[in-house]
């Protein structure tokens, strides 16, 4: 059972501590995103890294379009990982869409989680009746188009042939190793689920203490969105970093490490 789970989500366990810290990557890449963060927690925690099904080196064949048509499918996977590895008092660190996956999992199984750390969370990306999400429906369609160009453009005339070509394993290996390379159909599906999903109502249901890490400016999850999440989650703390972009764990890892450590030590 565990072996299957480990293979399905490409789970990697390290660290010298006892309390588990589970890191979940955001849309587009895989667990490699955490490479600048995890060394800082290696000594005091057990580090659990994994890839969402469909991303990175997870088991692509386990991608069930129906199950993953909402973030609940991913939240169930997260719960299964915690249960399968017998994790208790989990400190969950989720980036971007994985923040919401954490919200759903903690809402369903509060007993498993001690803290949530949410980097660049957004419960809904689309502007709606006074709610500011930062995007219009057309923007998301444009993203899907960009994805199509990069995954399904002329390269798609080549890649499926290469991937399916057992005579040339070196090519498929190279493609598989690329951090941000996903099966085009899965990439599009995951993009739709991520950017069109609305999880605003799930925020107040979470009683687990949470840290919200916000950058400015962040085009994907603007400050207003971070503040909204903070307001909706009674047990949350809000931390605005002095850096821009959506991936501070890559661009300003020392600030991210500092705020997580400060939060956990208090």
């Amino acid at each position: 059972m565990n072996n299957e789970l480990i293979k399905r989500n490409n789970i990697n366990i390290s660290g010298k501590g006892v309390q588990p810290m589970v890191f979940a990557h955001g849309y587009g890449c895989d667990q490699n995103m955490w490479r600048y963060i995890t060394p800082a927690f290696d000594r005091d925690y057990q580090i659990i890294l994994f890839d969402h099904v469909g991303s990175g080196k997870s088991d692509q064949s386990a991608y069930d379009y129906e199950k993953y048509s909402s973030l609940k499918g991913y939240a169930d996977d997260l719960i299964a990982i915690c249960e399968g590895l017998n994790l208790q008092r989990v400190i969950y660190v989720g980036h971007s869409v994985s923040s919401m996956i954490g919200v759903l999992a903690a809402g369903k199984r509060p007993d498993l989680f001690e803290n949530l750390v949410m980097i660049g969370p957004s419960p809904f990306y689309i502007n709606d009746n006074g709610y500011f999400g930062g995007f219009t429906r057309q923007d998301i369609d444009e993203l899907i188009e960009t994805l199509e160009s990069n995954y399904l453009g002329w390269s798609s005339f080549i890649t499926p042939v290469i991937i399916g070509n057992s005579e040339k394993p070196e090519y498929s290996e190279e493609l598989r190793n690329s951090f941000c390379n996903m099966n085009p159909e899965i990439a599009k599906h995951f993009a739709r689920v991520t950017f069109l999903g609305d999880n605003r109502e799930d925020l107040p249901k979470v009683s687990t203490p949470a840290l919200i890490i916000q950058c400015h400016p962040d085009v994907i999850a603007p400050v207003q969105v971070g503040e909204y999440v903070h307001k909706q989650m009674p047990e949350s703390r809000y931390e605005l970093l002095d850096t821009s972009g959506h991936c501070p764990h890559l661009t300003a890892p020392e600030q991210v490490i500092h705020s997580i450590k400060m939060y956990l030590n208090n």
Binding site: C29, M33, Q138, T146, N150, F195, I220, H246
Partner: peptide
């Protein structure tokens, strides 16, 4: 454009930082 911005933040920037 907006789609490009999202793609930049979710794909291009992480790749530049990591590789």
């Amino acid at each position: 454009g907006m789609g490009g911005k999202i793609y930049f933040e979710t794909h291009i920037m992480p790749l530049l930082k990591m590789q």
